[in-house]
Simulated scan of single mutants.
Amino acid sequence: MTEDESGIDNPYTPEKKQNRKEWFFEQVEDEHGDRVLLPDGGNETQHLYEDLMGCFINGQFVACVILSASIIEHLLVLELGFTDFSYPEKEPTLGRAIGDAEDAGIVTEDTSDLYWLNNTRNGYVHFRDGRTGDSPTMEQMQEMDLGEFNPNRIGEDDARRAIKIAIRQQARHWEDFHKAMDEELDMNELYEQRRG
């Protein structure tokens, strides 16, 4: 373990960066196999993925949570565009997009990870003073022995979980897209079948 003078594990060593790079590509391979990860959602989503990988490798863990949530929001809103859900005034928040994607038959698996990511992202993006219990750092500090508290560990654990969720949702999207093509359905027809 590499520690700086304060005794906190240093996430910025070349070895740690290489380990994170390998871990990232293992996650992609586990979910996508030999398919190339080509995110839908336009250039913005591609840039988000590139930044996600770079931020994770370089130890910017909170950015990874925010970027992962943004990627999922792009995917869900893109997919909701194939359905009867419409948002005449503005695009939905991530929380609303998750709920609407469930209702539309887009997301059929347990959504607790998606809601965890939404809430964790909100805890980092919006001010939380810790008294309300919805601050990611405060919640995790309360579960730990303060003598073992390591702020880098909290951020990295959240980043790894967020990245897995984003990569899994991209894989789900690609599977849906290819299933619709194979069965000669448009995406809304596929989602309608799921809704029964």
Rank of each mutant, 00 (worst) to 15 (best):
G42M: 09
M181T: 11
D157F: 15
E175S: 08
D129H: 14
N119L: 11
E148P: 00
E183Q: 14
L94P: 07
P39C: 11
D30C: 00
R131E: 15
R131M: 03
P92G: 05
E143A: 08
N122S: 06
D113H: 13
Q140N: 10
Q169L: 01
M144H: 12
E89R: 03
E184Q: 14
R96V: 13
V36A: 12
Q170G: 05
V65D: 00
D9Y: 15
R35K: 12
E15I: 15
P136E: 01
L78G: 04
W116P: 02
K17P: 05
E5N: 13
P14R: 02
D100C: 04
R194H: 09
S6P: 01
L38D: 15
G59S: 06
N43P: 08
Q27C: 09
L190V: 06
E156T: 09
L38H: 15
H32Q: 11
Q46D: 10
E109P: 01
G147P: 00
F56Q: 02
Q193R: 14
F85C: 02
I71L: 04
R35F: 14
D186I: 11
M1N: 04
L52S: 03
D40R: 09
P151V: 06
L146E: 00
P136I: 04
F61K: 02
Y12I: 01
G33F: 02
W116T: 07
K179E: 15
F61H: 10
H173Q: 08
E175Q: 11
H173F: 08
P92K: 04
G7P: 06
F61N: 05
E192H: 08
H126N: 06
G147K: 07
N58K: 04
A101S: 15
A166E: 11
Y115K: 12
I71S: 01
G33L: 01
T13R: 05
G130F: 07
Q60S: 05
I57N: 04
Q193L: 10
D176W: 03
F25Q: 14
A63W: 01
V65S: 00
V28K: 09
Q46R: 12
P11D: 00
E89Q: 12
S112Y: 01
T13A: 04
R121P: 02
L185H: 07
F61M: 04
Y87E: 01
T83N: 04
R96H: 12
H74F: 03
D182Y: 06
R96I: 09
E22P: 06
A180T: 05
G54P: 00
T2V: 13
D158V: 02
H32N: 08
E184G: 05
K21N: 14
R195V: 13
R128D: 06
G147A: 01
E50A: 13
D40H: 13
L185M: 13
E50R: 13
A162R: 01
K90Y: 13
L78K: 11
R168L: 07
S86H: 10
W116K: 08
T108L: 15
V77R: 03
R172L: 12
D84H: 13
D134K: 08
G41S: 06
Q60K: 09
N152S: 05
L37A: 14
L37Y: 13
E139L: 12
H126L: 03
D51Q: 15
T132D: 15
P11Q: 01
V65M: 00
G33N: 08
T83G: 02
